[in-house]
Amino acid sequence: MSRVVNVRATPDSIKTMCTKHAFRISALEELVSGGARVVLLDPRDADAFRVLMKDRLIEGSVTRSASHMARQWTPPARWK
């Protein structure tokens, strides 16, 4: 199962919930289309998070900030 969850919630409320339930966050970003994208370290935590946030889940595609691409590592041409 995926560790990524898109929800209609603020990053602060997500952090609070994850702290309360001892879920470990790998990445958290606010979405341009509204809501937030959270990546949890453990897929079981992601499943439990989905159950807790079932009324706020965002189904389908979302619009992410262009800055998320800047954080991704691109291997040098000689490695390809």
Rank of each mutant, 00 (worst) to 15 (best):
L41S: 12
V62M: 08
A36C: 15
R3L: 00
R50T: 03
R8K: 10
L28S: 14
T19Q: 11
E59L: 04
R56F: 09
T63F: 09
D12E: 14
R50L: 00
L40P: 08
R50I: 00
L52G: 13
R56G: 04
P76R: 01
R37K: 09
A9I: 00
S26P: 00
I58E: 15
A9N: 12
V4K: 10
R24D: 11
R71S: 12
V62D: 15
R37E: 15
E29D: 14
D45N: 09
I25Q: 14
N6I: 00
C18T: 05
S61N: 13
I58T: 08
M53L: 03
T63C: 08
S61A: 13
R56I: 00
L28Y: 11
S65L: 03
S26W: 06
H21L: 03
C18D: 13
C18L: 03
L41Q: 14
A46T: 07
R50D: 07
R3F: 01
I25W: 10
S2R: 06
R64P: 05
M69R: 07
T16P: 00
M69W: 03
S33N: 13
R3I: 01
S2F: 04
V51S: 15
E29R: 08
L40S: 11
K54D: 10
R37T: 08
M1Q: 09
L57I: 13
V38M: 04
D42W: 01
A9D: 15
P11W: 03
R44E: 15
D55H: 09
R64G: 10
M53S: 12
D12I: 01
A27L: 05
K15A: 09
S65M: 04
R24I: 00
A27R: 12
T10S: 15
R24Y: 06
D12M: 03
E29N: 12
E59H: 12
T10F: 11
R3Q: 10
T63P: 02
E30S: 14
D42H: 07
R37M: 07
R78G: 01
A77Q: 02
F49T: 08
A36E: 10
E30M: 04
G34L: 05
S61D: 15
S13W: 07
S33C: 10
N6G: 05
G34N: 12
